[in-house]
């Protein structure tokens, strides 16, 4: 009778853990910032999967420990042995084999989602149009990306300011505008130290390494204003290296491209802060690298 009760209780426990894990896995979508690219949705699926699995493992282990803490307490001077089992070959095999399968499953899931993202490592600008043709669109339900040419934008990082160049239009700006529902390729360059391109809503990050041209292709899907942040520590004013990112409707985008004349350089926060006396309570007055003053916009104009 007791044994049946035990099994029933165990089954209820496992069922509860499964339900909670599934539920938290679904909740996980809301813990992330809004998904603004086609790729972001895949990443969120992966995250949800990881959370569900993680919660399941956590609750199983912690549940066992907490159950034991509640039921196994003994009196202070009882130093006799609890139970003599030194191990159990079958059990040990199971808890080696199951996690192995589990982590390989996670790795496989992560791999297949990674394959769906068009994350390129070292830049291969030449053959990426070919690879695009061979790799059918990510979010086929939403857009037909092959029908339109890829919009290519150059991203330039310098201590501590972002500059964006639109080669076809020969303009450079301090804010990034992207067309909705079109594939965009960002080509990254840095002139001094390693920086990182990170917009949380886009769910990807790419270090920008001086003297290496790297690129990344993706499809913005959600209109709005986002914030780009430098994600690789780049020195004194690292925290100020931000820029606004806009995902525009195709009409608004072409409108912006026409109207902008390169004068949208944002206020350079680092240079502004560097120019004035430090406002903080405790001042060390240690040396800082001189922030770069962007003159790119006018340069580009005069050159062409």
């Amino acid at each position: 009778m007791n044994k049946i009760l035990e099994i029933v209780l165990l089954a209820i426990g496992v069922a509860a853990i499964v339900v909670i894990s599934y539920w938290l896995g679904q909740q996980a979508y809301s813990w992330m910032p809004p998904a603004a690219t086609a790729e972001a949705r895949h990443v969120d699926d992966l995250f949800s999967f990881l959370v569900a699995l993680g919660v399941f493992v956590f609750l199983t282990v912690i549940g066992t420990i907490v159950y034991s803490i509640i039921t196994c307490r003994t009196t202070k001077n009882d130093y006799t042995e609890g139970h003599p089992a030194r191990g159990n070959g079958k059990l040990e095999f199971l808890w080696t084999a199951i996690p192995t399968v589990l982590v390989l499953w996670i790795a496989y899931q992560s791999y297949s989602i990674y394959q769906q993202l068009d994350i390129e490592g070292l830049g291969t600008i030449m053959d990426s149009s070919a690879s695009l043709a061979s790799q059918p669109a990510l979010a086929t339900t939403v857009i037909q990306p092959t029908s339109q040419p890829i919009e290519e934008i150059e991203v330039l990082a310098k201590q501590w300011v972002w500059t964006f160049r639109y080669p076809q239009k020969k303009i450079a700006t301090g804010e990034l505008h992207l067309p909705k529902n079109r594939r965009v390729r960002l080509v990254f360059q840095s002139e001094d130290v390693i920086h990182g391109f990170y917009v949380p809503e886009f769910r990807f990050k790419q270090d920008i390494i001086p003297n290496h041209t790297l690129d990344f292709t993706f499809t913005p899907l959600r209109e709005g204003k986002y914030k780009l942040h430098d994600s690789q520590f780049s020195g004194t004013y690292f925290a100020l290296m931000e820029a606004d990112v806009y995902v525009d409707s195709p009409e608004a985008y072409s409108q912006w491209l026409k109207s902008t004349n390169g004068n949208t350089m944002k206020l350079n926060l680092a240079a502004a802060e560097h120019a004035q006396k430090p406002q903080q309570l405790i001042k060390s007055n240690w040396h800082a690298v001189e922030p770069y003053l962007p003159l790119v916009a006018t340069e580009v104009k005069s050159k062409n």
Binding site: T236, Q280, L281, I282, K283, S284, A288
Partner: peptide
Amino acid sequence: SDLVDRTL
């Protein structure tokens, strides 16, 4: 940033 300056 109000307690210690950026370099510190």
